[in-house]
């Protein structure tokens, strides 16, 4: 199964009832899979007339209480930013999948991680955050869709699943739970617009005209974000306890970094890996723990398919207590294991 198909299957099993999207490479297998299997499971599939239409359909479906999702690739995700900002402002759950390609502009269809800032810093106007999940294998792409929908509902907040072309296109064996497609998960949504006969009217909006109202609302959002930062940091760490150099990489890049750690360890070079699974909230706790364990003696190397985006979060996380180096390529180029090993050798 390809990464794109695994995401689609995971979404359906996690109770996604509404999907709207518009085709773009390298995520076409995702919308293709949805077009067949959503109707098969009596869910709604819409190929929208544009990316902007698709995200606004998700906005509407979510306001009505449905588990709703859209997907696209970088330039298409840019088009969705207005809608994502409105969804965040209206405190609605939604899942948005971005199978990144290289940019800027139309760029090309090869894998990249250059939308890190866009995903983790909000992306649209106003000050908001999306929870950002970064799977690193086809299996994890499937599994993560359950978390994505659950987190979105729990916090009434948009969740972005951030993959790249390599992950979307590659096939790997996937273990699927035996039970077939599950019925939509019954999550109580008392705020949803379901018709207000015999109850008070619900209002879904991101518009606060009266003086002070918006500030009050924004403080509420900030409180929610602080809670997410506190409770939802997720990461994988490998061999960090005695490491002299800790590699930091996410998504497809982390797989290559993991191979590099194995090769370097085999040569006696004490290397470890922190793989952020949530990019926002960034897993600061992983770095605090690694710093404690290594007595602040380890250096960090952020490896990205971009020219230095996550490295800023790594610097903030280690707070000046360790050296932070960077290795990155973008535009379709992927740092190789050889390049990582060479860079590590130049640091130690």
């Amino acid at each position: 199964m390809s990464g794109n198909e695994a995401i689609a299957e995971g979404a359906i099993r996690a109770g996604c009832c509404f999907y709207a999207g518009y085709p773009i490479t390298p995520q076409n297998e995702l919308i293709g899979y949805m077009s067949v299997h959503m109707p098969e499971n009596k869910r709604i599939f819409i190929q929208a007339e544009s990316e902007i239409a698709a995200i606004n359909m998700v906005f509407g479906a979510s306001a009505a209480g449905s588990r709703a999702m859209t997907s696209s690739s970088s330039p298409g995700i840019s088009l969705k930013q207005e809608g994502i900002s409105y969804i965040a402002g209206a405190q609605l759950p939604a899942v948005i999948v971005n199978i990144m390609r290289a940019g800027p502009g139309l760029g090309n269809i090869w894998p990249a991680q250059s939308d890190y800032f866009q995903a983790t810093r909000g992306g649209g106007n106003g000050e908001y955050r999306c929870i950002v999940l970064a799977p690193s294998s086809v299996q994890e792409s499937f599994d993560m869709m359950f978390s994505a929908f659950n987190l979105a509902d729990k916090y009434r907040n948009p969740v972005i699943v951030l993959g790249d072309g390599m992950l979307g296109q590659m096939m790997e064996p996937v273990w699927l739970p035996v039970a077939g497609c599950r019925l939509p998960v019954a999550v109580k949504k008392p705020w949803a617009l379901t018709g207000c006969k015999e109850r008070e009217q619900n209002i879904v909006k991101s518009f606060y005209m009266h003086e002070g109202d918006l500030e009050k609302f924004n403080l509420l959002l900030q409180k929610k974000y602080a809670q997410i930062m506190d409770s939802e940091q997720r990461y994988e760490e490998i061999d960090t306890k005695d490491a002299k150099i800790i590699l930091v990489a996410y998504g497809s890049m982390a797989r290559i970094a993991k191979s590099a750690v194995k090769s370097l360890r085999a040569k006696g070079i004490k290397t470890g890996l922190i793989r952020p699974i949530t990019l926002w909230p960034f897993p600061v706790k992983a770095f605090q723990q690694a710093n404690r364990q290594t007595g602040e003696q380890a250096n960090y190397l952020s490896i990205e398919m971009s020219y230095g985006q996550m490295v800023e979060d790594v610097r903030l996380a280690v707070c000046g207590k360790a050296r932070v180096e960077f290795l990155g390529r973008s535009g379709g180029g992927v740092p190789t294991e050889e390049e990582i090993i060479k860079k590590v050798n130049s640091i130690k």
Binding site: S252, I256, S259, V334
Partner: peptide, 9 residues
């Protein structure tokens, strides 16, 4: 074993 990069140099 677990496979790192699916891309082959």
């Amino acid at each position: 074993d677990e496979i790192g990069s699916p891309y082959i140099d």
